[in-house]
Amino acid sequence: MYKLRVNGLSAWFQNKQVLFDIHLEFPEKKVIAIIGPSGCGKTTFLRCLNRMHELTPGARVEGKVILDGKDIYSEMDAMEVRRKIGMVFQKPNPFPHMSIYDNVVAGLKLMGIRDRKILDGIVERKLKEVGLWDEVCNDLKRSGAQLSGGQQQRLCIARALATEPEVLLMDEPTSSLDPASSARVEALIRVLKNNTTIVIVTHNIQQAARISDFTAFIYNGKLIEYGETKEIFESPKDPLTEKYITGRFG
C-alpha cells in the first residue's frame, strides 16, 4: 500500500532545472531517507512533496505527486496538502512571538479549533510524544524562542504533529543539533512511524542507515537508486551510490 507516489517530477528555479523526472513510491508508515551530496536537489524534492517549492518566487514544478490516489497538484488545494503533509525544517523555527503553547496549537487554530479543553489535551499529548512535556509543562506561556536548540526542534515537531498529518517531511532535522538532541529526535522518529509516513532528508549517511526503511539516493537532480535501506547499504546496484555511501565523494 503506497501512501505517496511521485510520478515524473521535475522542478525548476527560474530557468534552471534542479529535479529531473523522478519516479518514486513511499510505502505507508515507513521511514524513507533521501540522501545525496549538498546541492543535489534533495531539499527541493522534499519541498515538492507538500507544495512548498512553489512558494519560492520563480519556482516551478511538473509531474504528479499522488497522495492516497489524489494528485496534490491538480486535485488538491495547497493548504489542504500542507495540512495532510506536515514539515519539519532544517533550522528549528518556533514562532518567537508565540508561547510554547501557542506554537503547538498554531496549526489547530488555523483549522478553526478554539475549544480550550481540546487544545489543552493536544498540547499535553503532543509535547509528551516529543518528550518535551516534563521539561516545559510548568511554563507553557514562555516564548518558544527561549528553549535550547534541541528543545526548539522538538517543539517544531510537536507543532507539525498537532494537526495529525498523515505524512511528515523532515529536512535534515538534526543537522543543527548536538549529538544528544539528535539521538532524541532519531528515537522519536522510530516511534512516530507507527502512525505516520516519514520522509527525511539527511546528509548523514549513518543516520539514514540507522532510522530508515527505504533510502533514495539523489545525485544532480536525478534519482540514482531507490530501495530498501538494507539493500542500498549492503549491495548498491549503482556504482555512484556505492561511492557515495562509502564516503568517497559528497
Binding site: G86, F89, N93, C156
Partner: peptide, 10 residues
C-alpha cells in the same frame, strides 16, 4: 523561515 513554518501548517 517563520513564514514557511506558517505556510507548512496549511
Amino acid at each position: 523561515l517563520l513564514k514557511e513554518a506558517m505556510f507548512a501548517l496549511g
